[in-house]
Design a protein around this nucleic acid. Structure first.
Lengths: 352, 352
DNA sequence: CTGTTAGCGCATTCAC
DNA sequence: GTGAATGCGCTAACAG
């Protein structure tokens, strides 16, 4: 397809492009008003006369003007930028959460920078330090465990912070999460009530996953169920974590009635391995996952999942953060939101 | 835990914090040098004397100084920001790709803003327009189909662009992808060569997925295999897409020998449904996915996946983009990289 | 090796 | 309703 000049519109404007695009000054000259008026026409159209507004809009269109947010933010001290740090996004429930969060933020005109910490406090710290250079209007962190320097930097920077996905008594700032210990205990009680007695567990070496499985094992022990075979496999959690895990369990410990996984990704691997062995789920082998928190309920219909009741977690985080940014007060400092969780009873643990 | 003042270090500095943090001028005063020297000490330490460097570093530490990138970028015209637009990130191979891309970019000091287009050209356009306000150093788009305004904006803005995940003759700028038609044909030939004759297919209404499945059906037709049952289900692709799809296929069309899915997520749903029906994979039912492109090969060991040979796709995109940004020439304009793909023969299609 | 001058592009603050 | 002056925090380009 050959380039063809459009002769009817924008006769020589396209050729006169400055590197970096047109500026407010360019627009103001073309429109025959001051640059201040252009700025107002763009951000507060209601305060400008209709005629000027038209002239400005015309000039903006002619020049293809796009405001330079860096310059604007430098003056206004609002970057409309939120930074989110997650341990991982691939094969992870965090992808759902981040997507919901980005969606909510985008609707309010905020852009999202993502940092992947790979479950490392040190990487988190480096990413936080780097991102503070962009003066984000808000920061979201997964978990409540952070390096001392991270904590100090964040406190000093005075940026609104939401810690998510966990619960603690003294959050850095705001907190939206739930107790992983309670999740573990709830899983145990749920499965016990359904008559399961021979358990097994597969987790990756993710601190919160380990805590969930640990709490479950403790609860089981209270019901005289001990020596539950359990595996802690290396992160990241992938399908093969579940496949290898089930294979290993079957070889070394015989077949359990139900295998509890620290994440839905692992559970999917278990299901895949079950399919390859012709094990019928849930009668030959029941499977319990974890996740589904920020997704619609139809996302993991094969698994019994723990999920948030009502609003998506990502949406809740966005709301809390934006409320705080908007009122510019510290009214919500120390705010703690326990999202709670549900146990959804799905096919994979529904015995006939 | 009570806050306790550390009396030995940073005596009164912490109290004197300006809102927004210390500035270059603050550091230069404390260090007793000019602000320019501080700037150099931070970005080009080798060009500053050792003594000055020490003074500057000391002052930086005292003040907890973090450079304001907005101001820096405004002058230098380099934002060290890359924007990536993907149709979705939840339950998607794009999450892998984006993670690999972010990883490579982060190593070179670039931050990544993600925009989710939800397979909508209109949303892509709005996101691109908005992000151009941040003057990103590079933009990555999925696919080669974009609205006219998007194309024009990008061309005029002169930002390096990589279109990924598809192939075409005249890319906007640079291109890193593969042919979805070739993938579809290769899948057909591969499965035929393994002796499969009774096919079925499940896809979501994603343009590229449909093209893959369409090309596969065409190739099968050339081998006298026609009337292949196939479903096009609504996006987004989730586990239940696969579960519902298989259920529907079995009810209406009987059991195929192999079901081809337009993504690994769907294939995982099919495996889950197979497990719930006690169908043994691959003998009762073989499953073919698509994905695994930017992940290590062990990620989807249950599926026969199409994957990139060698380097991760996200890494390749980062490399192409950073090369272009670095040399600041247009030498690589029009660059087209065909990543190709592999068919990995895995358990789920390996018949005994 | 270091300092000075200038200005990036915009919004705040005040005049009118 | 509109405009002029000022400066956000930093770096490019020079001079010394």
């Amino acid at each position: 397809m050959r380039e063809k000049r459009d002769q009817s519109s924008e006769p020589e404007v396209e050729g006169n492009l400055k590197p970096g695009g047109a500026t407010l000054a360019d627009v103001s000259k073309l429109a025959g008003v001051s640059s201040m008026t252009v700025s107002r026409a763009l951000h507060k159209p209601e305060v400008v006369s209709k005629k000027t507004l038209e002239k400005v809009n015309w000039a903006v269109e002619q020049l293809g003007y796009i405001p330079n947010m860096m310059a604007g933010s430098l003056m206004s001290k609002r970057s409309r930028l939120v930074a989110v740090f997650v341990p991982t996004v691939a094969h992870s429930i965090f992808a759902d959460m981040v997507q919901a969060l980005m969606h909510s933020l985008a609707r309010k005109g905020y852009h999202t920078i993502i940092g992947v910490t790979e479950y490392s406090d040190k990487q988190e710290q480096e990413l936080v330090e780097a991102i503070l250079g962009r003066r984000p209007d808000g920061i979201v962190l997964i978990g409540t465990q952070h390096s001392d320097l991270t904590r100090k930097r964040l406190q000093v920077s005075n940026v609104p912070v939401v810690e998510a996905w966990d619960m603690c008594d003294e959050p850095l700032d705001m907190l939206v999460g739930f107790s992983h210990e309670e999740v573990g205990r709830a899983i145990a009680r749920h499965l016990l009530s359904k008559g399961f007695r021979r358990f097994a567990a597969i987790s990756v070496a993710d601190p919160r996953g380990i805590r969930r499985i640990g709490a479950m094992l403790d609860e089981l022990a209270k019901h005289e169920i001990v020596d539950v075979p359990h595996l802690y496999l290396p992160i990241p959690a992938t399908l093969s974590t579940g496949r290898d895990g089930l294979r290993q369990l079957l070889e070394c410990n015989g077949r359990p009635e139900v295998v509890v996984c620290s994440s839905d990704t692992i559970a999917q691997g278990v299901l895949a391995e079950a399919a390859s062995r012709g094990l019928k789920v849930p009668n030959d082998l029941a499977v319990m996952g974890f996740g589904d928190l920020s997704s619609a309920s139809q996302v993991y219909p094969s698994l019994s999942s723990v999920r948030l009741d009502g609003q998506l977690v990502g949406e809740t985080i966005a709301k809390v953060l934006l409320d705080r940014i908007a009122q510019k007060s510290s009214a919500t400092r120390g705010l703690r939101v326990d999202t709670g969780f549900n146990i959804i009873d799905r096919e994979s643990t529904r015995r006939s």
